[in-house]
């Protein structure tokens, strides 16, 4: 068992190293995210709408769109020089590859949010509100990124083997994310606006959704990376 997780760790470390050595993936994702956040906040300013009401919607739409860029790279880099075959040989289990890629994507998304969320915070001037539940806010960011990374990694494993990958990936991804979208927006909204609603249900919902969509690809990934 420890051997299993050791191998996951090895591939994860390899991917993270690769991410920071080339840096262009993370950087372009962050720049794209900053751009989105800027456009959204500015457009809201132009219409004189209260942007703090729409903060969580803007935040998650930006993260969802940027995640397409971030996750799309994760399997693409293994295609050059048939690295995929080597990975399959080295790991011996497709679940290991899934877990490592998933953790790498999750890390990239969290790093991305580290830059983009404070920026959106400043642009929209939401800090004036005061009664913000920081723990819940960070927790919902983590839960949302977890679900995004898990579903995205599985679908990227599929689309990367097809010619029209770039077009297919978001088409496959977004419908599956709808329950996640509903959940995370409820959580962030409550964290920011302090609405006293029974919220623990949504947190449990998100956790079980994420566990389901982390375990399900583990089972199905044998069929995704076959031959």
């Amino acid at each position: 068992m420890s051997n299993y997780f050791h191998r996951v760790l090895l591939i994860y470390v390899k991917d993270i190293k690769d991410e920071f050595r080339t840096f262009d993936n993370l950087l372009s994702t962050i720049i794209f995210g900053v751009m989105l956040v800027f456009i959204f906040s500015f457009a809201f300013q132009l219409t004189d709408l209260a942007v703090d009401q729409a903060f969580s919607a803007v935040l998650w739409v930006s993260i969802f769109f940027s995640s397409v860029l971030a996750i799309q790279r994760s399997f693409a880099k293994e295609r050059e020089n048939n690295v995929m075959d080597a990975l399959l040989l080295a790991s011996g289990d497709r679940g290991i590859i899934f877990l490592a890629k998933f953790l790498c994507n999750l890390t990239v998304l969290l790093l991305f949010e580290l830059v983009v969320v404070p920026l959106l915070w400043i642009f929209t001037g939401i800090s004036a509100l005061g009664h913000i539940q920081a723990g819940l806010f960070i927790g919902s960011l983590f839960l949302g990124s977890w679900g995004l990374a898990a579903i995205g990694t599985m679908l990227n494993g599929i689309t990367i083997q097809l010619p029209s990958a770039r077009l297919l990936f978001p088409i496959l991804l977004f419908p599956l994310l709808i329950p996640l979208l509903i959940g995370v927006i409820q959580c962030t909204n409550t964290a920011l606006l302090g609405v006293s609603e029974p919220l623990s249900g949504w947190v449990y919902f998100l956790i079980s959704f994420n566990i389901l969509f982390t375990v399900l690809p583990l089972v199905l990934f044998d069929f995704v990376l076959e031959g």
Partner: peptide, 15 residues
């Protein structure tokens, strides 16, 4: 493509 569609069909139905 058949295999991928089958995987997606299962995941989408659960969704």
């Amino acid at each position: 493509r058949r295999r991928f569609a089958a995987v997606y069909g299962i995941v989408a139905f659960i969704n």
